[in-house]
């Protein structure tokens, strides 16, 4: 292979890493939305507002990455919001009530979250429980456990630096929580595009039997995917705890729906096998910018709900339309 060929190939794979193939529709939508809000408000197009939006999407962004993995293999995870609340309560209990160092509290919270995901995955693969049912059950169980830890009360009293990690902007723009989110995005994109493990998810979502006959360990991969999704929910919970400087068991109610919406807006098909993290990030940004913009436009809260619903319908309809045309 000549040097120019190598160069060309590297260039193309670089371009691929930053392209959002399959999500061009949503990307155009996002850009139009930004232009519209820039014209309609004086406060939208500012560095500070941009940073606010990043702050505001951390939890949804990380959760939606996990949800993308699950939906790519043709599954669904309804338990992410509850698992997040459970992880938050474990974090608060270990750090504040039991007085353990933060690092142990974070490890404990992630372990509990991961375990919840592994159990869902195990039920789905070994007992053939449909993913919808298994994670619906986990949603209820995790929420109940989260409430049991403190009998329904919140926990406050984290060390001061914990909240500061969500407030102090290092280098003038990057809070620790946003940095974690960006790291998750980069790792997820690299995994999904360039690791054999990432490509396998597409095979499983496209047709699990073909994947199995192709030598892919479908069961193990499925359990790992649900575990990762729950781990990411736990991580989102830790960041949310930092942002709110408190934890409460009623956190994250209906977050699974936001996460699913972001994934779907980003062009990942609910039947699995197509889509990707790049699209999901755009989906998350669309929801984040939309919420932020509607607040800036002073749109009534009731109308906001209607608009977000319309955007979901629009995104999915556009994708279906594109499919039919091609």
């Amino acid at each position: 292979m000549t040097a120019t060929q190598t160069l060309r190939q590297e260039k193309s794979s670089l371009r691929e890493a930053f392209s959002f193939s399959g999500a061009t529709g949503p990307l155009i939508g996002l850009l139009l939305l930004c232009v519209f809000l820039t014209v309609m408000t004086d406060s939208f197009l500012s560095f500070r507002n941009f940073l606010n939006i990043l702050d505001q999407i951390t939890v949804l962004g990380i959760m939606a990455v996990g949800m993308t993995l699950v939906i790519l293999i043709g599954g669904i995870d309804l338990s992410v919001g509850s698992v997040m609340a459970l992880a938050m309560m474990v974090l608060g209990y270990l750090n504040v009530e039991a007085g353990m160092p933060m690092i142990i509290a974070i490890t404990g919270a992630l372990l509990v979250a991961g375990l919840a995901g592994a159990i869902s995955g195990f039920l789905i693969t070994e007992f053939k429980v449909p993913a919808f049912i298994a994670t619906l059950a986990m949603m209820s169980i995790a929420r109940g456990l989260a409430n049991m830890i403190t009998d329904g009360s919140q926990i406050i009293g984290f060390p001061a630096w914990f909240n500061m990690s969500a407030i102090i902007r290092y280098g003038g723009f990057l809070t620790l929580t946003v940095a974690v989110m960006l790291a998750v995005f980069v790792i997820a994109i690299l995994f999904q595009r360039y690791r054999a493990g990432g490509r396998m998810l597409y095979a499983i979502g496209g047709n699990p039997e073909v994947a199995r006959l192709a030598g892919i360990n479908v069961k193990r991969t499925t359990i790992l995917v649900y575990t990762s999704c729950a781990l990411l929910s736990g991580l989102a919970g830790i960041l949310l705890a930092a942002r709110l400087d408190s934890v409460q068991p009623s956190s994250g109610v209906a977050y699974e729906l936001d996460a699913i919406a972001a994934v779907v807006i980003g062009g990942t098909s609910l039947s699995g096998g197509t889509g990707g993290i790049g699209g999901t990030i755009i989906g998350v940004l669309i929801i984040g910018v939309l919420r932020n913009g509607l607040n800036l436009l002073n749109v009534s809260p009731f109308l906001q709900a209607v608009i977000i619903g319309l955007v979901i319908v629009l995104a999915v309809a556009a994708e279906t339309f594109k499919h039919r045309k091609s």
């Binding site: 507002n49 409460q248 800036l296």
Partner: peptide, 30 residues
Amino acid sequence: TATQVSQVQDMMTQGIDAFIYIPAGAAAAA
């Protein structure tokens, strides 16, 4: 609570002069 924090951030961007605050949820985030 998380939604409320985001909304308050957006309010600050809009340059309000005074803030009337009824906390959402028990955690009554500071």
